[in-house]
Design a protein around this nucleic acid. Sequence first.
DNA 1: AATGAATGAGGGTTCATTCAT
DNA 2: GATGAATGAACCCTCATTCAT
Lengths: 200, 200, 200, 200
Amino acid sequence: MRKQPRQARSKAMVERIIEAGRRVLTEEGYDALTTNRVAVVAEVSPGSLYQYFPDKTSILDEVIERYWDEVSERVTASLADRIAPTDDGDDLAAARAITDALLAALETDPNLLRVLSEELPAARNRRRRATLERRVRDLLSTYLTLRPEISSRPDPSLTAWVMVIALENLALRWVLDAPGFDRDRLLDEIVALVGGYLAS
Amino acid sequence: MRKQPRQARSKAMVERIIEAGRRVLTEEGYDALTTNRVAVVAEVSPGSLYQYFPDKTSILDEVIERYWDEVSERVTASLADRIAPTDDGDDLAAARAITDALLAALETDPNLLRVLSEELPAARNRRRRATLERRVRDLLSTYLTLRPEISSRPDPSLTAWVMVIALENLALRWVLDAPGFDRDRLLDEIVALVGGYLAS
Amino acid sequence: MRKQPRQARSKAMVERIIEAGRRVLTEEGYDALTTNRVAVVAEVSPGSLYQYFPDKTSILDEVIERYWDEVSERVTASLADRIAPTDDGDDLAAARAITDALLAALETDPNLLRVLSEELPAARNRRRRATLERRVRDLLSTYLTLRPEISSRPDPSLTAWVMVIALENLALRWVLDAPGFDRDRLLDEIVALVGGYLAS
Amino acid sequence: MRKQPRQARSKAMVERIIEAGRRVLTEEGYDALTTNRVAVVAEVSPGSLYQYFPDKTSILDEVIERYWDEVSERVTASLADRIAPTDDGDDLAAARAITDALLAALETDPNLLRVLSEELPAARNRRRRATLERRVRDLLSTYLTLRPEISSRPDPSLTAWVMVIALENLALRWVLDAPGFDRDRLLDEIVALVGGYLAS
DNA sequence: AATGAATGAGGGTTCATTCAT
DNA sequence: GATGAATGAACCCTCATTCAT
């Protein structure tokens, strides 16, 4: 960002621009994301955009960043809530909880998710998705390490890598493609997948 | 395509154009894929290009189409070779074979795969990847149906959906991200994943 | 230039663009020299400009180049005509002839001269004016060398440098500033200046 | 200027702005001379800038004005010092002294001189250079009138015009182009040029 | 008076597509 | 069919200037 918006008015401006970018993406798609369009939607002049963002790309980056940050936060917040109580015994509830949290997070703004996932060059999401993956992977590793008896797989980091990629993409595809089975079925399958894997 | 090129010369031009598109993508990236650039590389005039393709998109579509067709063919060809002999008993060899075939297919043109997967809007690959997925899913279903005793999962089509998405993305990410473990480790994990899943 | 315009049509296009640049400069001034304005005046699309010129600057460069080339040619052509006959004796006729030729050349398009000299950053004309200066300086040196008896100055190259700068600027300023004395008076003074200098 | 800054604080701001303009020109060149840049360098807000200057041009004009004023003052000051003692007889010392003074003045801020002379539209310097020329021309006329025996040229004002233009440009080009001969050689040539001219 | 955020007209340039030859 | 010159809408971005605070 070009200037640090310290004043309230400036901050509001930045928010308006980013929000406008998000709305344009969501409602009109990636191709409509021109600097002039964002300016119009933000009810701001094109020049104002460039007071705070060095170029068009950086606006998009910010939208992406925020989206995945939200997703990350929702996932980890949900997890904190749901993993804790499962101390008692049903270990696989963790997998279910993680996927459930991920699904919930992805379902909060499916239109934006669709545009980000399908209309943008995938590389644009990369860094941010990697961050999310790492976060979840870390949570997973921690969990596995705390309860070593759950997994019979030799390499925990490899195990985490496999699980995260599988979970993430299953969740993503279920949200984006809306195949004909319901959410609980998906969760059941994932529990089976993960459970079987860890048991092998 | 605008017209069916019946004459040899025309067919040759179409080939030249598609090949040029593929080369530009692979060697110069998506941003360099302009109609003029393709025309230059194809040693064809921009006008001629529009004799056979209604717009730029259709050229790209054709490149994508062919790429995923090749991948599909390699996968199914490999499978035909490898599944057949495993009649004897080691059922999980199938999963290994499928993934192996998929990896082999994805490894044949990693540069193009990278551009297609990372620089293009993901939606562009969608239709074609869906086709590939369907093919593999069908092979899987067929296999599962022929050997019902392997799977204890209730819904075969759901099971296939889960397996294909997991396999595909694990293979893809392994090829694209080159994580630090070798191919056999990946195959081992996938066998464990699939084996455990089917056994659940 | 981006493409070598080999075909007649292309050449015509290039000519139209340069001519338009020249006209815009002459009639509307440097600030009006925008790519769009040039395109309009050339009755050409903005895109066409960029078929032959990599950027706006190169159009201007070409106008400048041509202007000073014309001036150079007129000067040297005039000189060839006028110096030759003066074999007989009146040596200072040469100085008069050179200045006269230069004046004549500068007077052929005074409006363009004014814009180039006054509205452009001087550096833009530099290279081209340097070329002109060199040409005239060379002619001068040749002349002085052929008739060593005319000059009593020690260093001919220095002498030429001094004379060319003095002559050039006197001529230029007379054309641009139109001071209140007539052309013959200027020539008289220059003859006196040069004559006295060489005699010193 | 928009208002006459009567208060010390205001005067200080005007000074800061002009000084900033000068520094930007000298250190960063004409293209960098934006109102925002000047404001930043002057540590003043863009808005304040417009309290004292109606537009960007007027800032530049002031910088130019001051530069040529300085040059003028240096020249005339030097001349006052140097012409007086030459009562005795060596008349050409005056030409030498004038040129020497001019060279000295031009050499005091060669970077600014270069930007003003080469990067600006020449017309921007016109008015101010005209003033300088007039001043020197007047000094010259006065001198010639006081010592009519020196010049055999008929029209003193024309004579002065010729001499000033020749001197000025020779000095300017020597400073800007740094040709390969030293300052004394230049002065020698100019003395010869002027001496011969006046004697003709 | 001073600020500095906001403005917006207008600039140079690209490239998918067309069409006269 | 083939050509490639020509098109022009639309893009991103700058910066002199204004004005609410």
